[in-house]
């Protein structure tokens, strides 16, 4: 009798049991801190104990702060340049590897993907050595291939080279990653469609445009969204590469770095929260724009 009751109980309440640990953690470590940070962004904080309500002052200051503007510009610059290089490069590699008779495909796939196994922090450490003027691997290679540029490029000291250095490191990190996704999608494209297109006399390019690309759309959408969100959260690479500073003349600073310096160097948790909410806004806007762009793209 009791057993039966227990049995009925467990089957009835099972879903609640299954989600309850998650819900507990979710509310404590996600919902609560989110709400708290929204409130916090209206305060000026010097320590966990001393806080002062300032209304929208933090946001007001943010909007006219040149250091924040610089960080936003750097972040956008990175996101745009990085994405517009990563996606085509990944796609090109995937198409190249997807050819009918490619030898050593396993090896190539591993070779291109392996750099993704290295974490951001470690990439930054490696690159900080490889970018050394005259003695670093990258500069030596540049000097060997392009003697007119020479080996003296000051990647981490020249403001205008700060972000290109970060883009370079990021590309090494993630081109192979994108490639894996594209490869999987390419293998999913129906062979018969190709054959049909070939029979219709479609050229190589036409086949790519009308058969391959549409098949890649879901992956493309996924990679762009994930890539953009990641790009706007850029932190570790520049932070470590520039020795925990904002880079040459602040040209290596990003939104999250700015948040970090404000919240944990200067110690104003309120102001840092305000920076965080601006970041939220930016990411939400971009996601919305992308969704809308896709919808428009689907109509034609």
């Amino acid at each position: 009798m009791i057993r039966q009751k227990l049995w009925a109980l467990q089957s009835r309440y099972a879903p609640y049991f299954f989600v309850s640990p998650f819900i507990a953690l979710f509310s404590v470590f996600m919902v609560y801190p989110l709400c708290r940070s929204l409130v916090l962004s209206l305060y000026k904080a010097a320590s966990p104990r001393s806080m002062k309500f300032v209304g929208l002052d933090n946001y007001r200051f943010l909007l006219r702060d040149w250091a924040f503007r610089g960080a936003v510009i750097n972040t956008f610059y990175f996101a745009i340049v990085f994405m517009s290089l990563q996606i085509p490069l990944s796609l090109a590699l995937a198409v190249a590897l997807n050819g009918r008779r490619v030898y050593g495909r396993m090896f190539l796939r591993f070779a291109f993907f392996s750099s993704h196994l290295v974490g951001n922090v470690f990439v930054a450490i490696i690159f900080s050595m490889m970018l050394t003027p005259r003695h670093g691997l990258i500069n030596k290679a540049i000097g060997a291939v392009f003697p007119f540029i020479g080996t003296e490029t000051q990647w981490t000291a020249k403001p205008l080279l700060a972000m290109p250095a970060i883009v370079m490191a990021s590309l090494w990190l993630s081109v192979g990653y994108g490639m894996i996704y594209f490869l999987a999608a390419l293998q999913g494209v129906d062979r018969e469609l190709y054959d049909a297109a070939e029979m219709d006399g479609a050229g190589r390019w036409d086949r790519f445009r009308h058969v391959t690309l549409p098949g890649l759309k879901p992956v493309l959408r996924f990679l762009v969204l994930v890539g953009l969100i990641g790009a706007f959260q850029l932190f570790e690479l520049p932070f470590v590469l520039f020795g925990q500073t904002a880079g040459p003349a602040g040209y290596g600073s990003t939104i999250v770095m700015y948040l970090y310096f404000m919240g944990f160097d200067a110690g104003d948790a309120g102001f840092a929260s305000a920076v965080g909410w601006v970041l939220v806004l930016i990411i939400l806007l971009i996601s919305l724009l992308q969704l809308r762009g896709l919808r428009a793209g689907r109509d034609d």
């Binding site: 989110l34 708290r36 966990p48 948040l259 948790a269 929260s273 965080g276 939400l284």
Partner: peptide
């Protein structure tokens, strides 16, 4: 919450951990 970057919670989480 999916699209919200976790960095926005860093300050409030730090206070909570304190």
């Amino acid at each position: 919450t999916m699209l919200i970057p976790y960095q926005v919670m860093l300050p409030s989480m730090q206070l909570m951990m304190y």
